[in-house]
Design a protein around this nucleic acid. Structure first.
Lengths: 225, 225
DNA sequence: GGTTGTCAAGAGCACTGCTCTCGCTGTGTG
DNA sequence: CACACAGCGAGAGCAGTGCTCTTGACAACC
């Protein structure tokens, strides 16, 4: 491996890297992912374009880093919004709202991670764990407070093989599929709002999300508030 | 207005325009929207780049045309899939499946219309009607076969002001919000599949969509099959 | 103190969207 | 039937992009 001198050299490098990432995120937020130009980032940071390549291998790698940071940002925001002591449905709603408000504040970053993948660019594997955070958070709430619907004796044969084996270990089997559907619904709804699909359709988007969240909460067996 | 000679000139113009749009869609499908270059379209069609501007005002206008065509394509596919004589849930499922299979066949076009909006580009108003086709189709099924849930006396005050007034005229008021949620769920699920979010999560995506569709069908009051 | 390696800078290649000007050619009209 | 004009394709050119390679300087380590 490479030597790692803990001296000032490494510190300077870290600072420059941060400056580049910060400026890149700024441009991303202002003009969208496609308008993100390595040259203009360099210009703004105060170096020549070729120097940036010392810190970032390519434009794609820059985007990848921004993607991971964005996933972590939503995940963190959602986790912070959840109060484990609150009633289940309140926790659930808080997470939904947190995702929405993060998206409203960072539409370009939201589009980067939940919109169409950047063309000609396959999300590298390192983004996968970060991508699951919000989903796991929802799953944790379901695992703790979700009650499988009564009745319906044993007709659970249909869900075999649909989902990955062993996904969401703590969640009651009949609730796994509804949980995935709810997770999808959350990002589908926020995405539709952000991408303009609710133009002339939904007026009060916050209330709409609450309503959808509540229906989803019922589908994963959260007790009524 | 401009003169419009119905001679061979106009025919040639129409043909060239079609050739440009076809080639553009071909490139879109192969490499994604960002890689769509007016110059390479021109090259492939056999003219110089500046000549293309006689037919298409800008790259953005080209994208807009592709967007409208894509919306129409999904809409048409979905409408064709619905057999009005079939049982309600079969109609419903057919539409969901049609949207999914169209998306699988045309992922880049799907991303273009349901993914993040192309950066620095606001969807012009002319795309709005085309964008609503699938939604209206779902609404038609709900209007015809959806039965509002019994009981629940008159607690419909909460949904006031959330959605646009007079949206989906034929649909029973308590079913309007679930219908919008179902419409969102459809594209959220297909989008999540196409954009790779179900990697290592959902194995049998077709069966998963069917299951979600069925739950959604219940939420909009379609009678059990 | 010398050597080594990391760094910023610059030039350069191939590409992009878009504009403008130049001639040719087919078209509808006088 | 001839002509003037609109429509068209070609080319040059501007400003910008991602990325590579080479060059020279400076600082960090042995």
């Amino acid at each position: 491996m490479t030597r790692m001198p803990p001296g000032t050299r490494a510190r300077a490098r870290a600072e420059t890297t941060r400056a580049i990432l910060d400026e890149a995120r700024r441009q991303l937020a202002e003009q969208g992912a496609a308008a993100l130009s390595l040259r203009s980032v360099a210009r703004e940071v105060g170096m020549v374009s070729s120097a940036v390549y010392r810190y970032v291998a390519s434009r794609d790698e820059l985007l990848t880093r921004l993607i991971v940071e964005a996933y972590d940002a939503v995940g963190e925001r959602a986790e912070a919004a959840r109060d484990p002591e609150a009633p289940p449905r309140a926790q659930w709603r808080a997470v939904w709202r947190a995702v929405r408000s993060w998206g409203l504040e960072h539409p370009a970053e939201y589009a980067l991670i939940y919109g169409s993948p950047v063309p000609g660019y396959a999300a590298p594997a390192e983004t996968i764990p970060a991508a699951g955070r919000v989903g796991l958070l929802l799953a944790a709430i379901v695992a703790e407070h979700g009650q499988a619907p009564p009745g319906d004796g044993e007709s659970d044969g249909e869900s075999d093989g649909v989902l990955l084996e062993g996904l969401l270990p703590g969640v009651a089997p009949p609730l796994v599929l509804p949980a995935i559907a709810a997770w999808t619904q959350l990002f589908g709804t926020v995405g539709f709002e952000l991408f303009g699909q609710y133009e002339n359709v939904v007026v009060d988007r916050a209330a709409f999300l609450d309503a959808v969240a509540d229906t989803a909460a019922s589908s994963v067996g959260l007790p009524p508030s």
